[in-house]
């Protein structure tokens, strides 16, 4: 990936940024990314926002659980061991980045428009048919019928 290309444009770039903010990026990659961040404002803002989240999470201390909370929680979890389909769908789809699908969908829509089969013949509608065209067709058909021009 080019050093100067905005990382937010590709999923790999975004993932690298997230890894970096989580402190999991390989040191050598982190150095490259940091040099990019110095010159890319959107990536810098993104990284700053992510780091704020991580710092907040690091600072968060879970409240001391009240007596019986864990047992109630376990009982509740047992009740809801099978999540609703909406929740499962949401959980599944949250793991998918839709970003790369957008250009694909656009390309597919373009392709579908170009390669779409011709529309079936629209049944004759008086509003769409010019009287002269109808007259011409009828004349041709009548001529072929009467004169047997190419009858076998």
């Amino acid at each position: 990936m080019a050093t100067d290309e905005c990382r937010l444009r590709t999923e790999e770039g975004v993932e690298a940024l997230l890894e970096y903010c989580a402190g999991r990026l390989h040191a050598a990659d982190a150095v490259v990314l940091e040099s990019h961040l110095a010159g890319c404002a959107p990536c810098r803002e993104f990284a700053a926002a992510q780091q704020t989240v991580w710092q907040s999470l690091d600072a968060w201390e879970p409240a001391i659980e009240t007596q019986g909370f864990q047992s109630r929680l376990n009982a509740r979890l047992a009740e809801d061991s099978t999540p609703a389909w909406k929740d499962r769908l949401r959980a599944w789809s949250s793991g998918i980045s839709w970003k790369p699908a957008i250009p694909m969908a656009a390309a597919f829509a373009l392709w579908a428009a170009i390669s779409a089969p011709p529309r079936p013949e629209i049944p004759a509608q008086a509003e769409q048919v010019r009287p002269e065209a109808v007259e011409r067709m009828l004349e041709d058909v009548d001529m072929l019928d009467q004169l047997k021009l190419n009858a076998q």
């Binding site: 013949e121 049944p123 004759a124 509608q125 008086a126 509003e127 048919v129 009287p131 109808v134 007259e135 067709m137 009828l138 058909v141």
Partner: peptide
């Protein structure tokens, strides 16, 4: 196409 035209469509198509 010509055959499938309803009487109304025929009338409209030829009225001009």
């Amino acid at each position: 196409r010509l055959r499938r035209m309803s009487p109304e469509e025929r009338k409209k198509a030829l009225e001009k």
